[in-house]
Design a protein around this nucleic acid. Structure first.
Length: 1143
DNA sequence: GAGCACTGC
């Protein structure tokens, strides 16, 4: 122990100054220098009293000005002047406050507030005063109105002085000055057009000297300000908020509060501001409040905040409402399926997708005065698109005299994609940095990096932590469900409460708490690892010596699958460990366990995937074990094949994981890889938009009339291939207009990437699902199929509706239980799939059956459990069905669909119809069974060929069609594991393909036999035609279809006309025709003038079907009469003329 | 004959 202790000491000295949070906080120097009193640094959460000073002393130059030098003489002078003024102001505020005491009694003041709808209560301004003292640039409490003018006047003077020095100041008045911009320019042009214009012009200007453009514009702005600055300058506003003293106190500890002044000034002076602050800075909860207090929600405008996750939107809205002492009708949220927004809502938290949908309805987002994009560093696709759109919307709004602000909030300092992207913001937005309040986390690296058995190493590290280190929860980061479960199992085995039984329920754990507690105090050393203050920087490779890593680096332990063989893992019930798995697909019930305190005496150990990195925060974690890897989905851009691979994580992500150890107290992070490996990690993870297909995004943008998606100001542009294939797919689905097939190559190329949206595309864009599924919804009305199509689409959209039953098991009992469940699940799938047509709908029928059965049983957790369905997935499907039903009814008002809880199974006809609709949506996902003669390799047995892949794909063994092996199938996706497997398979008939997917087929021309014929029902010329499927040239059966357009069709039509098939009234003359009608088709037909006369008349009016003929006669009753007369004897002319047209 | 991280409309 002594040795250990010494080593802890060593480590303490060596390591502790390397809290992860400090790694990127280089700006702390700046803070010191500006604050003028070095003592302030490091006095973080306990120095409430000094906060105002540091706040006031941070001038705007702190923005991402390219270089940061010590203050110049002039600047210092300015600073001193400002400080002096502030001091005076504070003094004056004090006096005024005293004056205030002799003003109206508070009870009366209260009344005044309420009448002016400005807030409530006395507590409020007392509280405000205590904060307000330092915030002297902000107007003092309401009652003293004289200060306002003073403030803004002084402020303006100062700005004018500074303006000449700082380049960024030049544009600073944009936001306010634009208010006096007359809206003369605000034409009626569609908003979307303006965007594409903006995009185009932005691009053009990019090629010019940018600096000059900016300067010039700045100059103009300056001029504008001179002329209309007076109106633009609104008096500063303060909307009071009545916070409870506890809230007020807690708030004061948040670092972001010290920056309120800086932030609000920046917001006032800029259209767009970037705010960087790590977790714990309080920006998400406080910044909306700053804006509210500054009056941004006064004039009916809403402060909108977007979050990348639903839980965050909901919980943040509740928290902010509570902090502000306002109802949820004022501080509200909106997520996909629900919300509590009212007409009184002032602050609205929502998921990013919700705002994107709102832009579709109102491009200018007129009800918002500010949009805050939170967690922009996560770079979710919607966040990226929103930033791109808002970079155009905000200037547009200001131009139209409807001022709007954009705040981008990010946890990391990687914001160059936003600030340095000239296409996005021509004038780089200012960047404000906020310190985070995090406890220090000491990072320990392994000396060696296990390449194979990292789960084993994670396990061993966890064991050591548990054996040797003081109390505190352990969080282990692994990559997937299977790893999580097997590691849980090994840990439980190593530290069981009862050696014979594995339990996870705290109730069982707490059976004998006294015993456990006693054991704990005995077995855990009383060393406080955080008790060292001198902490040199990274010496990662050596820290294995510093304590728990002392015995080895894990390389010589072959743990394999039999952990019980190694002495180290001998079950040790004396120190109980409360082990819990955590991953996204886990039931809510199981997930909730990690938030409850562990049973008394036991240490909490959560083995988690990436959910614990951002989505869920587990309380009480002191130790993090990081395997350094993530499982990521990969898409092949060309073939569309998905696969999951485990890769190294990024530095930012590893730091985020480490940060999870420092939420409640100082913590430790054990990285089971070397610091050298860490330094090889990429600094940040790639933006999601570069890693996935973008067809849905492209459709959304086209719906906003952004035709040239390549020119869209993406923070990070998706690859050209991804954009091309998205456009291609959308054209095939009929959502975009087909580009011209002739013309100059350059023009064609250009047109290919800027196809406008079709009416069908608009309808599809209204459905909040992937375009392929949206197409199915658009077709779903036939045969009363809509409720089924909606359900099928909903199930395909919700991931993983079946429970994963292949997890590792801990004992024989569990193994047999799981095997039983698996068998039961397989049986139910077959049952749900049914027979005949129903079975051919395949996996989609299974999903439909599962949802139907579940809903029929009332969608209870018990039913799901019994049938191995994921309850969460079933709830999501239910809600999605509701949403899609509403969307369908909205698009098509006479559809009249409703959600039927007790949905009866579809009829045979309906199933056929469903399969055809699915084929129409998944046309590019068609596969054909490999024929016997093509079977070159035995490995290809039972394989399928697809147009885009050279290799065969297979029907997954879990599919109900695994043994059926239909000739043609469509699939939801191809996933590569041990083989290329199709998921979500549905059988289709070969003869449907040319009919439903003509865009993918090459037609050979009408078959000679049977000869083309006239269809009396449709009134058109029909024929049989053969075709082949694109790229692969699969021969498709000859099918009946409309005769292809062209001269031949006119000839055939005239033949049928002469025969009396088109107009039965002409039949009576068919026996006395001067030539046979079939003359029309002869190669020598031209020798007879009457053929030419007839054909010429038809062609001139484009008449090759009955409807067109009717239309021509409506226009001109004598149409075709003379041409027809050439075919009959003169004796009949009069009679025919009399009864013309023969309808 | 089997292996899916995480999100949002």
């Amino acid at each position: 122990m002594g040795r250990l202790r010494k080593k802890h000491n060593w480590k303490g000295r060596q390591q502790n100054t390397h809290p992860v949070t400090a790694a990127e906080n280089q700006q702390s120097d700046v803070v010191v220098e500006l604050s003028g009193s070095a003592i302030l640094k490091g006095v973080d959460d306990s120095n409430v009293l000094v906060l105002p000073a540091s706040k006031a002393k941070k001038p705007k130059v702190e923005y991402s000005a390219p270089q940061k030098k010590p203050l110049s003489k002039k600047q210092r002078k300015n600073l001193e002047k400002v400080l002096e003024q502030k001091e005076k102001k504070a003094h004056r505020a004090g006096i005024l406050n005293k004056l205030a005491e002799v003003q109206l009694p508070e009870s009366e003041l209260k009344l005044l507030y309420t009448t002016s709808k400005l807030g409530t209560g006395d507590k409020l301004y007392q509280a405000k005063e205590s904060v307000g003292e330092g915030q002297n640039d902000r107007p003092a409490p309401l009652k003293i109105s004289s200060l306002r003018g003073v403030n803004s006047r002084r402020k303006r003077r100062r700005e004018d002085e500074e303006g000449s020095e700082s380049g960024e100041e030049v544009s600073s008045e944009e936001g306010t000055s634009s208010a006096c911009d007359s809206s003369s320019e605000a034409g009626e042009a569609g908003a979307g057009d303006e965007v594409s214009d903006g995009v185009a012009s932005g691009e053009k200007e990019n090629q010019e000297e940018e600096g000059r453009v900016d300067m010039k514009e700045g100059g103009e702005k300056e001029g504008e300000r001179a002329t209309c600055g007076k109106e633009a300058r609104q008096p500063a506003v303060f909307v009071p908020v009545d916070r409870s003293p506890e809230i007020q106190e807690a708030r004061l500890k948040l670092p972001v509060l010290a920056e309120e002044q800086v932030i609000m000034e920046a917001v006032r002076e800029n259209e767009c501001v970037v705010l960087c602050g790590e977790t714990g800075s309080g920006k998400t909860t406080q910044v909306p409040q700053f804006l509210y207090e500054a009056g941004y929600a006064r004039a009916g405008g809403i402060i909108g905040v977007t979050e990348p996750r639903r839980v965050a939107a909901v919980s943040m809205s509740h928290r902010v409402a509570k902090e502000m002492n306002l109802s949820t009708g004022v501080v509200s949220y909106q997520i996909r399926y629900e919300g509590n927004v009212t007409k009184d809502t002032k602050i609205k938290f929502m998921t990013d997708g919700v705002l994107l949908k709102e832009i579709q309805k109102d491009f200018l987002l007129q009800k918002y005065s500010v949009i805050i994009i939170d967690e922009a560093h996560e770079r979710s696709v919607y966040t990226d698109i929103l930033i791109g759109l808002l970079s155009r919307i905000v200037p547009l709004r200001n131009k139209k005299g409807l001022p709007m602000k954009l705040l981008i909030m990010s946890a990391t300092l990687r914001v160059e994609d936003f600030t340095e992207n000239k296409r996005l913001f021509r004038i780089p937005p200012p960047v404000i940095k906020v310190e985070a309040r995090q406890f220090p986390v000491t990072v320990h690296f392994n000396k060696r990096t296990p390449m194979e058995d990292y789960t084993g190493e994670a396990f061993r590290k966890t064991c050591k932590i548990h054996r040797m280190l003081p109390p505190g929860g352990i969080l282990v980061f692994l990559t997937g469900q299977a790893e999580v479960h097997s590691t849980c199992w090994r840990l439980r085995k190593a530290f069981p409460y009862r050696p014979n039984k594995q339990h996870t329920d705290p109730e069982i754990w707490s059976e004998d708490p006294r015993k456990a507690k006693r054991k704990k105090t005995v077995s855990l050393p009383r060393i406080d690892l955080d008790n060292y203050s001198a902490q040199p920087v990274d010496e990662g490779d050596e820290d294995r010596q510093a304590g728990i890593d002392d015995d080895d680096d894990g390389s010589d332990l072959e743990l394999g699958d039999h952990p019980e063989e190694t002495g180290q893992e001998k079950a040790d019930p004396s120190i109980p460990l409360y082990v819990l798995p955590l991953y996204s697909l886990l039931s809510s019930e199981q997930q909730a366990k990690v938030f409850r305190p562990p049973p008394p005496g036991a240490r909490l150990c959560v083995v988690a995937t990436n959910v614990a990195e951002t989505s869920l925060t587990i309380p009480g974690i002191k130790y993090v074990v990081d395997c350094g890897r993530v499982k990521k989905r990969f898409y092949d851009k060309v073939t569309g094949v998905s696969s999951f691979k485990v890769t190294w994580t990024s530095q930012a992500s590893a730091n985020q994981r480490a940060g999870r150890a420092g939420r409640t107290e100082p913590g430790h992070c054990y990285r089971i890889y070397s610091s050298a490996v860490f330094s090889d990690f990429s600094p940040f993870s790639e933006a999601e938009i570069t890693r996935r297909p973008v067809d849905d995004l492209v459709l959304q943008m086209k719906d906003l009339n952004i035709d040239k998606v390549v020119n869209f100001p993406f923070p990070t542009t998706p690859s050209a291939e991804a954009l091309v294939s998205a456009e291609q797919l959308l054209i095939s689905l009929g959502a975009l207009e087909e580009p011209p097939r002739q013309g100059r190559m350059v023009d064609m190329e250009r047109a290919r990437l800027s196809c406008p949206i079709t009416p069908l595309g608009r309808a599809m864009a209204a459905f909040p699902v992937a375009p392929r599924y949206a197409k199915m919804l658009a077709l779903g009305r036939q045969q009363d199929c809509m409720p089924y199509v909606i359900t099928v689409v909903a199930t395909m959209t919700v991931r993983e509706i079946f429970e994963e039953l292949d997890r590792p098991v801990s004992n024989e009992e569990e193994r047999s239980r799981l095997a039983e469940r698996k068998a039961g699940a397989a049986q139910r799938r077959r049952l749900w799939a049914g027979q005949g047509q129903s079975l051919l709908l395949g996996d989609l029928m299974v999903m439909l059956g599962a949802v139907g059965a579940c809903e029929f049983a009332g969608c209870t957790p018990e039913f799901c459990e019994k049938n191995s369905l994921r309850y969460k997935a079933m709830l999501e499907i239910r809600r999605l069905r509701g949403q899609l039903t509403n969307a369908v009814n909205a698009v098509c008002s006479d559809a009249g669909v409703c959600v039927d809880g007790k949905m009866v199974p579809p009829t045979e006809t309906q199933v056929v119809c469903l399969r055809q609709i699915v084929l129409a949506g998944l046309g590019d996902h068609l596969a054909r069974r490999i024929q016997a003669e093509e079977l070159l390799d035995p490995k290809w047995r039972n394989g399928y060929k697809t147009p885009l892949l050279d290799e065969p794909v297979f029907i997954h063994p879990s599919s109900v069609l695994h043994k059926t092996l239909p000739d043609f199938v469509v699939y939801q996706e191809v996933m590569e594991t041990t083989k290329m497997y199709m998921r979500g398979v549905c059988a289709v008939q070969a003869d449907w393909i040319p009919k439903l997917l003509p865009q993918y087929c090459h037609f050979s021309g009408p078959d000679p036999s049977p000869a083309p014929w006239f269809c009396p029902i449709s009134g058109t010329v029909k024929c049989h035609q053969q075709s082949t499927f694109f790229r692969v040239g699969w021969k498709l059966p000859s099918v009946e279809m409309d005769h292809p357009e062209g001269l031949e069709r006119y000839k055939l039509f005239s033949k049928f006309l002469l025969e009396g098939q088109v107009c039965p009234k002409l039949q009576q003359h068919s026996t006395c025709l001067l030539s046979s009608p079939s003359t029309m088709l002869k190669t020598w037909a031209k020798l007879q003038p009457r053929t030419e006369a007839l054909l010429g008349a038809l062609v001139s009016e484009k008449v090759d079907n009955r409807d067109a003929l009717q239309a021509a006669w409506t226009k001109n009753a004598k149409f075709l009469l003379s041409a027809y007369c050439q075919w009959i004897p003169e004796s009949l002319h009069q009679k025919v003329t009399k009864s013309w047209p023969p309808v």
